[in-house]
């Protein structure tokens, strides 16, 4: 509802993400082709897992999808918007409004409260007043089950709680797409389970989620699996 130019594209089943021939070559030396000619689509509400061995280019692909890096070739339509060749500040607008990130290392500000960390997800949208930011942050904090920890410092949370705060931060901006890189990589199995349950909830509520992982438990929850090997993306047949 706050995304610019994206409202009409947000009906179920439409492509949130369309990628054609996307490639990323790190100039080196030696030059490394981390992502090679990737073509795929993700439809609204899909829960997609991308698996593959370490070094196969999963993180690089995710950073391209998240507009953190620019591809060396290919086209990319995000939520109906052509995002190739945008200026740095335009890509910032896209990131602020359309994309939510969940990182393996959480990346919370340890010296700030849970509430402040979640509000940070709205800060760079720029148009949301302070009171509104707070209200919406409290809402998502409630949805990840951390209402009681609102005012606690993030440094004092357990790993599982930290990742739930990070997910709340990713969701608070009402993105079109949530990108997760090894979201359970730093968690024990119990905490992983709690976070995965949260992804199930997200999926059921219609959120589009792309998860990069080599954790089979995560891949197993996904509706659709893609495989990455040597920078090449292939559709995996569901086992």
């Amino acid at each position: 509802m706050t995304t610019p130019d994206g409202d009409e594209a947000r009906s179920a089943g439409e492509a949130v993400l369309v990628v054609e021939g996307l490639s990323k070559v790190f100039p080196g030396p030696p030059p490394v082709t981390a992502v090679r000619d990737c073509t795929f689509e993700v439809r609204r509400g899909e829960f997609v897992a991308i698996t593959g061995p370490s070094g196969s280019g999963k993180t690089t692909l995710l950073s391209l999808l998240g507009l953190l890096e620019s591809p060396t070739a290919g086209r990319y339509l995000l939520d109906g918007v052509d995002v190739i060749g945008l200026s740095d500040s335009s890509r910032c607008v896209q990131r602020a409004h359309r994309i939510g990130f969940v990182f393996q290392a959480f990346h919370l500000l340890g010296y700030r409260s849970v509430l402040e960390n979640v509000e940070l997800g709205l800060l760079y949208q720029g148009v949301v007043p302070k009171g509104e930011r707070r209200r919406r942050a409290l809402e998502v904090i409630d949805s990840v089950g951390l209402t009681g920890r609102c005012d606690g410092l993030c440094a004092h949370l357990s790993g599982g709680e930290k990742q739930r705060v990070a997910i709340a931060r990713a969701l608070v901006g009402q993105p079109a797409l949530v990108l997760c890189d090894e979201p359970t990589g730093n968690l024990d199995s119990a905490n992983s389970e709690a976070v995965l349950a949260l992804f199930d909830d997200l999926h059921r509520s219609g959120m589009t989620v792309v998860v990069v992982t080599h954790d089979p438990a995560v891949a197993g929850r996904a509706q659709r699996n893609l495989r990455m090997a040597d920078g090449v993306l292939t559709e995996a047949v569901q086992a």
Binding site: E14, V81, S87, S89, S90, V93
Partner: peptide, 19 residues
């Protein structure tokens, strides 16, 4: 259906107070 149009390039106005 698929539009390869320019996306919004409008700058984010973050308030000085927030920064």
């Amino acid at each position: 259906m698929t539009r390869w149009g320019r996306g919004p390039t409008r700058r984010v106005r973050v308030r000085w107070r927030d920064i």
